[in-house]
Amino acid sequence: MHTTQARIRLNGPTDLLTTVPLLLGFHPEHSLVVVGLLNGELQCTFRVDLPGSADHLEHLPDLTAQLSLNECDGCVVVVYGEAELAQAVAERVASRYHAAGVIPLDLLRVAEGRWFSLTCEKPCCPDEGLVLPETSAASCEVAVAGGYAEADRNAIAAQLAPAPPGRRAAVARAVMAALTADAELDWAAQRDLDLQAIDRWMGAKALPDPEAIAAVGLALGDLDIRDYALRRINSGQFEGNRLDLWIWVARHLEDDLVAPAATVAGFAAYRFGNGVLALEAFELALQSSPHYRLAQMLMAALQAGIPPGALSRIGCGDREEAEVSD
């Protein structure tokens, strides 16, 4: 199950607040998080950095368009930070969302392991806040669906850090050997080998060795093979969309080959519901190949708030539905 497919039942602030880090992929700090709802069910989650102070609210990104794109009719606003800034941010965004027809159902603040209501003045919400539990029934549902939370945003980026030099050098040698061998194959034979490589490693429990990393990395350089991998990801047949495989391959490739693998990794993360990891992967792809079109398109879609389910036809082109389901 993808986190985007899980039916998450939120029965109060603690359910929501313990679930947010799993939805984002890390524990936020100095952040505005908006949880979009449709008919009371969780629809989407967005996070942006807070400005430096309440005097600089004009620098706060507006998420109204993203909420509207996801057809949200309600939301919960959560600000991670100090009290004065949190109050100013919450009031500003609540006014915007209400004007757009997205009703803010609650305004909350989180700081130092405690949570505070910014609207409730009853004894159930004391001024000193309430202890935020580590887990809840809702967070357990998300964890079962594959959600997890790193300590911070840097830990997400570290997942895509280059492999140790020795292993990358071994893959580079394997790439050169594969290119030499491929020169002796005709197009049809090479295509069959590339498709077999994608199928084999998507279905494998282990991660590929240097020779296989080279084979997969080179195969993804062919747009048809890359799109075949995207369709296999969209099939939903593979645990975690084999995100571990795509990250493993991308981490071992040199700059001239990494863009396709990093883009496929980002797509797998996006479809799984991990937008932060997807963004890091797309940035890696564009650092090595600034004009790589699919990475540009997917990054733009992610930043616009397009839901993962809208990507189900990516990689299909003009192919018939029957081919996609094979």
Results as ranks from 00 to 15, higher is better:
R114D: 09
L107I: 09
A145S: 09
D152H: 01
C140A: 14
L118D: 03
A158G: 09
L132A: 07
A172Y: 09
S117C: 02
P162K: 11
W115P: 03
L105K: 13
D106R: 11
L105N: 12
R167T: 15
N154F: 05
A155T: 11
L160G: 14
P133G: 02
A145W: 08
A143T: 15
A149P: 15
V175N: 13
E134L: 10
E141S: 09
P164T: 13
S136W: 07
A161W: 12
A170Q: 15
D127H: 08
R168K: 14
R168T: 00
V171A: 07
R173S: 11
P104N: 07
A181I: 01
E112I: 08
L130I: 06
L179I: 06
G113A: 07
L118V: 04
T180N: 10
V110F: 06
L108S: 04
V131T: 13
A157I: 04
L108W: 01
C140I: 14
P104A: 02
S117V: 00
E134K: 12
G113E: 08
T180C: 04
V144N: 13
S139A: 13
C140P: 00
D186E: 05
I156C: 11
G147T: 05
A111R: 01
T119S: 09
A163G: 07
S136E: 03
A163W: 10
E184V: 05
L185E: 04
L130T: 06
P126G: 07
A138S: 07
A149F: 14
A183V: 00
K122C: 02
A178M: 01
T135M: 04
L118I: 03
L185A: 00
